[in-house]
Write a protein that binds this DNA or RNA. Sequence first.
DNA 1: TTATTGTATATCTAATTAATATATAATTAA
DNA 2: TTAATTATATATTAATTAGATATACAATAA
Lengths: 146, 146
Amino acid sequence: MKLSTRSRYGTRLMLDMAQHYQNGPIQLGDIAKRQDVSVKYLEQIIIPLKKAHYIESVRGPKGGHILTKPPEEITVAEIVALLEEGTSLVECTEHAEVCSRSHTCPTRLIWKEASEAMFDKLKSITLADLVQKTKALESEELAHVL
Amino acid sequence: MKLSTRSRYGTRLMLDMAQHYQNGPIQLGDIAKRQDVSVKYLEQIIIPLKKAHYIESVRGPKGGHILTKPPEEITVAEIVALLEEGTSLVECTEHAEVCSRSHTCPTRLIWKEASEAMFDKLKSITLADLVQKTKALESEELAHVL
DNA sequence: TTATTGTATATCTAATTAATATATAATTAA
DNA sequence: TTAATTATATATTAATTAGATATACAATAA
């Protein structure tokens, strides 16, 4: 039931890009340093995000990656759904045919409801919200140190 | 992010026991047949449920397992939390020390909120609800066949 | 034209999941 | 009292997935 590093790192990748949204193409090397994740792993994670057109890339020196939409218009639910390949906690709610009991299975329905509750929450959070939250947390931390 | 078979089968194990709550000790062999899961696997899954005192067992012929509480008093949230070993989608919300970024990490907070949304839903569903739901689904299915 | 950056595959390791096997202990009914 | 039945405990195995790393190639701006 744990979230994979794939969607956790992917969300941080997107958040990092949102934080530098105005700065032109962002390089994975920079994100990797800031987020403390290997470039090679980020290269894998970014593929589905590019395929789904959340990100565009430019090659060559001074190249990098750019969000195609403002952070206000991207929810965490979209990112997680993409990187986890679906919004369901069980295979059978999306593909009933994987289990012969699907049509009379009562537990199947509750897993569906639980998945929906979770994603409804994630739908309510945009990358812009996360950028804001980050600033708040950082000044909190600063106040705590002083 | 998928639920393990452990908690899925475990929930069905508990549901099956709830369906036969009045029938005295239930044998794993019977549950295994009805639920189409191997006895050996159920034997493993039942261990934490016994440790947490949801189930008591009697050995010998005519032995088996019994719920210690009526199905109305057991929620799916409890079962899943037990079998998934926690209610969190990420390690760091329960053990902040696993990640040095925890104190300023904005994503950590949203994973926590999402986990809570999910478990709040599961808390609202008891084994008795599932027993009811099963009956409804079965008569629906019957009506469909006729 | 070369340094820089992204792209595409392939490979690898470790952990986890899902399950099976074997041996043992308790209990009851014949 | 003993044979059948059932639970318990531990070990083992097979398959899958997660999490990463490595290698070779393609594009492009300075």
